[in-house]
Each structure stands twice: as structure tokens, then as C-alpha cells.
Write a protein that binds this DNA or RNA. Structure first.
Lengths: 135, 135
DNA sequence: CTTGATCCTCCAGTGACTGGAGGATGTATT
DNA sequence: AATACATCCTCCAGTCACTGGAGGATCAAG
């Protein structure tokens, strides 16, 4: 399998080189194998893991949460009740986020549409989003 | 209208007292009026604004983005094309986030369901989420 | 064998909080 | 009026998750 350098991994995942090294420091990414000269090498599995991390971070999960989420798929046999509990906890967070995002979207659509007309009557971005459930 | 102290505002919005003061420092919240003894006082409008900020932050918007979003509803007459542009830009970000959240949710549901059975066959949390579109 | 890109480590800075010290003020109780 | 306790104030140090840069080694191409 073709090994890639850190720069290529960065390009493929959209995660900066420095950030990848930082993720290794905090053990969110495993210690990378090195070439003789000390350069990190990565595999396709690392591309997947890092893409997952990137998506997860964008969605607001902390690095600790991502570690536990990654743990889920690394020990699929072990401790299944705990895994389900973690999954369900994250599920609740995800659903809360989605409902607020839907409200935010609806209001932004309204603003964009109203503005298109030339001038907007009353822009209630805050008013609408402020009513959204908090968690 | 009944004025409230910073602690009451914190309780009502779920934003910590220190964070409210921090938001004032960075001008995300306006400079609060003060009592004779120097204590900050707030109105219902502040509750709304801060609730909006809280929701927005939870959804991953930066404080700068929230300032521009708040600007939308504070100058509804002025610069309407710019407002629509900002709104549409945020709309794209919101939609990207939603589609990734939906993927995350589907996968977490699957994990939770599989685990319920007692043991999960293969937990593909990473695999599934890693395929999600990046933006 | 030099040039330029990429890699390495280390370290300082940023954004968005979070918590605590040290002290003043407000309210309720004795 | 005196004490107690909550809440407020300012200021400042610490945390998390990066981000960027200095200073130097390595590699691939011309």
C-alpha cells in the first residue's frame, strides 16, 4: 500500500500539517511510523481517521469526545453496553444541534429572500433564533 | 420594564457570568448600563440577544460571525444586498453542517441499535462518517 | 551541487472562554 | 447596628484547540 507524507495527508483531509502533528501529540491520531530520516508516513486508514476527526471537529465534538467515538469502532466486541451509551449520548447532542440548525436555516432563508426583493421589512434573525430550544 | 442583574441574566441564558462580561469586552454584547454602585443591569432584549449568541456559539459560529449576523437585524433598512449576501453565506455553512450531522446521526443510530442486540457485528463509526462531504 | 519544496522540533500567539484572588456592595437576620 | 452571606466588581492566570514561524535537516530535480 502506498505510504504518504504528512503534506499529502494534509492536502487530502483539509487538516493542516501542524494540526496533524498536534493530534499526534494529544494521541487523537496514533504515533505515525517514520522513515529512516525521521519523516512521518501515513496510510489510507489514517486518511479515513483524520477525515472523521475533521468532520467531527467541524460538528462541534471535542477531541476527547472524538477519542471515545473512535474507541467505539476500535473495540467493537468489548464493552458493548458502554458503546451504546456513548452513541446515544452523542445522538441526543446531534439531534439538539440539528433542530437549532433548522431554525437558523429557516430564518436565514427568510432574510435572504426578503432582502432579494430590494429592502427587507424587518429582519428578525435574533428574535427567531433566540426562541430556539437550548439543549 | 424590570431590569436584571448579571447573575439573573446568566441563569436565564445559560451563559456564565464571566463569559457575559467577556462578551461585553469584545463588543459582542453592548456596554451594559450600570447602577449607582457600578453593577451591570440588563433588559429582556439582552436576554434575547444573549440567547441568540449562545445558540449560535453552540452551532459553531464564531463571535465575529455572530456580530455580523446581529448586524443584520440591527440595520434592517441599510445595505440590504450585503445583508442578503451574509445570510446566504451563512446558509451554505448551515446546510453543510446539517448534511454532516445527518450522516453522523444515522451512524450513531446504527451503532446504538446494533449494540442493543447485545454485541455489535462491526462498528463502522469512522468509516461511515469519514465519507461525509467536507464542505 | 545548488535550489526549492517539504520535512523536522520547539515555542510563542490566538480565540473563546473559565476560574479564582481580593475587595466592595446588597440583603436578610439577629 | 452588627454580622453573615450572596452577589457584584476588576484583574489576571490558565485551558483547549489550534496556528504560524524560527531555525535547521532532507530530498528530488535540474
Amino acid at each position: 500500500m502506498a505510504m504518504l507524507m504528512i503534506g499529502e495527508l494534509a492536502r487530502r483531509t483539509g487538516v493542516k500539517v501542524n494540526t496533524i502533528r498536534f493530534y499526534e501529540d494529544i494521541a487523537l491520531m496514533p504515533k505515525a511510523a517514520r522513515t529512516d530520516s525521521g519523516r512521518r508516513t501515513y496510510s489510507e486508514a489514517d486518511v479515513k481517521r483524520l477525515t472523521f476527526i475533521r468532520n467531527g471537529r467541524d460538528l462541534g465534538f471535542s477531541t476527547e469526545e472524538l477519542k471515545s467515538l473512535i474507541g467505539l469502532s476500535e473495540h467493537p466486541d468489548l464493552d458493548c453496553g458502554a458503546a451504546a451509551a456513548i452513541a446515544r449520548r452523542h445522538l441526543l447532542a446531534v439531534e439538539a444541534r440539528m433542530s437549532r440548525l433548522m431554525l437558523m436555516r429557516r430564518e436565514l432563508e427568510r432574510v435572504a429572500a426578503n432582502c432579494d426583493g430590494g429592502r427587507m421589512a424587518d429582519c428578525q434573525v435574533i428574535g427567531a433564533i433566540a426562541e430556539a430550544p437550548s439543549h
